[in-house]
Design a protein around this nucleic acid. Structure first.
Lengths: 180, 180
DNA sequence: TTTACTGCACCAACCGGTCGGTATTTTTGT
DNA sequence: ACAAAAATACCGACCGGTTGGTGCAGTAAA
């Protein structure tokens, strides 16, 4: 029963994401995730043979989603940078709750699990630097945007929601003005 | 025995820091810290009545150190922003190993433990924004610098050591050029 | 006498993971 | 077309180990 298996699979990942968001990164236990997914612990282990595999799948899922949204945004923006910043401005808060703690869970569990994220970041950076003559300024904008995400990640943002939005707007605008 | 008590106190914090750095954020256990500090578990609990208290003290220690170094740097730099960026450029790597995992440990354990960090960030941001007419650009530089730190935190940097240094240099330079 | 511990036994809770078993679905032989 | 067999999907009790934390008898210094 391939279909049902895939369904359960994604149910478990969603459950893991919501557990991380609601209870905190340190509380992502197999029991908690299984309970949230409406699956027995045995069932969970059947799909993900270890906790490491589960968290790795979570990270991959988030990466895929981010990639997908960015690709969509690229159709209406003139540059990759603008697309990235715009995507982040729109979607960060929507998935922040989930993403943040999930990434954190991965980092605390075993830092190596974040390697796919690092590769993804590197790829995006290189693409952006190649597109702009003023690579330095482009990198700067990208970094600033990343800092905003990290603020969400650790709940460290010194900005109000309004300031935050204004900043995101500014970043997108500066990116659009910065052409090759 | 006030002096010895204070000494042991800081020994324990140092030990906690090094355990976090060497074994990872998820491995900061009371037993491990006690052993690393050359103290019995009972002795540890005598100084820090709970794990939360210990981690909170770790965070506070790091914050105090950062504050101290920044204040020193401010004597030779023209603006707070330049001082902050310069401090980060010099000291990030030196304390990154320790700091990174410590912060991560705190976040995974209980996100609320990072609140002092958030307050510190907010304070620095406001000071910088007040100093510069072009507050937006100043904020941008600060954010970019923060992103570099977060890269260390999670081992996510897409830059080589050389690129990284160049970026830090650039940030400081742009900060110096950006006067009120 | 108080402070600052040591050393160790102990505990309840929790955690990742195993294991034997079961229900359901798919494949296969006829 | 249909039953036997095999593979798949899942359950939940259980296990060994770890963790944060307690309790307490003893001790060396201030």
């Amino acid at each position: 029963m391939n279909k049902k298996s895939q369904l359960t699979n994604s149910q478990i990942i969603q459950a893991a994401l919501s557990v991380a968001a609601e209870k905190g990164a340190g509380k992502v236990t197999l029991d908690a995730v299984a309970k949230a997914a409406g699956v027995s612990k045995g069932g969970l282990i059947y799909h993900f043979p270890s906790k490491e595999a589960l968290i790795s799948a979570m990270v991959q899922h988030l990466l895929d989603e981010a990639e997908c949204q960015r690709t969509q945004q690229e159709r209406t923006e003139s540059s990759t940078l603008a697309a990235v910043l715009q995507t982040r401005a729109h979607f960060t808060r929507q998935i922040a709750g989930n993403t943040a703690m999930a990434i954190l869970a991965a980092a605390a569990e075993q830092p190596a699990l974040l390697q796919p994220v690092q590769q993804h970041n590197k790829y995006v950076l290189q693409q952006i630097q190649a597109e702009h003559g003023n690579a330095l300024q482009a990198t700067l904008l990208l970094l600033a945007s990343e800092a905003l995400i990290y603020h969400d990640l650790l709940n460290l943002s010194p900005f109000t929601a309004a300031e935050r939005s204004a900043l995101e707007q500014q970043l997108v605008q500066q990116a659009r003005e910065l052409q090759a």
